[in-house]
Simulated assay, not measured.
Amino acid sequence: MVEAGECRSRTLAEQDDKREATWRERALNAEEALKAAHAEILAQRTRIGELHGQIWDLQAEWTEEAVQRITTENTTLKQRVRQLTTDNRTLDERLKAARSNLRFQDRRLADLEAQIVDS
């Protein structure tokens, strides 16, 4: 009876040790994951800070006059693009008309040559 009690006590102690080892392992894994998360957060905060610095540097370089000048140039270039697009369409229509005229003249020339040959 005493041996059975001791055996049961040992079995319970072993089970407790196994449970404690499992919890200990989980706690260690959680601590490692927490450290990794803190490191990642620190790295991302550093990167965000660097990017904010770059944005501020870029914004500082542009004076109000420079922004106004670039806006004006952009507007001028857009107008120029519209004008060139219109000119391109006009020239394309003229080219089509010239090709049509050329085909008509070729047919007319062929008809005239045929008349000369016939007579």
Rank of each mutant, 00 (worst) to 15 (best):
D87T: 10
L112Q: 08
V2A: 09
D118F: 14
A33V: 05
E65L: 12
A43E: 15
A27Y: 03
L28T: 08
L34M: 11
F104I: 09
L95C: 13
S119A: 09
T22D: 13
G49E: 04
T86N: 04
Q83R: 06
E61L: 11
T72Q: 09
R82P: 00
Q83P: 00
H38I: 08
Q59Y: 12
K78R: 12
G53T: 06
I116A: 08
R103T: 08
T76G: 05
E64G: 03
V2E: 11
A114D: 10
R45M: 04
W23H: 12
A37P: 00
Q79E: 14
A21H: 09
S9K: 10
L77T: 07
A43S: 14
T22G: 02
A21C: 03
V2F: 05
T90R: 11
S100L: 11
R45C: 13
N88R: 13
I48Q: 02
T11K: 13
L91P: 00
R103S: 04
R82K: 08
Q15I: 05
L84R: 08
D17N: 05
Q44S: 10
E113C: 02
A36V: 08
D118P: 00
R10F: 09
L84A: 05
T11P: 00
L84T: 02
T86H: 12
Q68G: 02
R8Y: 05
H52V: 14
A97M: 11
E6D: 07
A98Q: 12
L91K: 01
Q54W: 04
E64T: 13
T75C: 03
E73Y: 10
D118K: 14
R107I: 08
G49D: 12
H38T: 04
E73I: 11
D17L: 14
L51Y: 06
Q54L: 14
S9F: 13
N101V: 11
E61R: 15
A21I: 02
L112I: 06
L84N: 07
R99Y: 06
A36G: 02
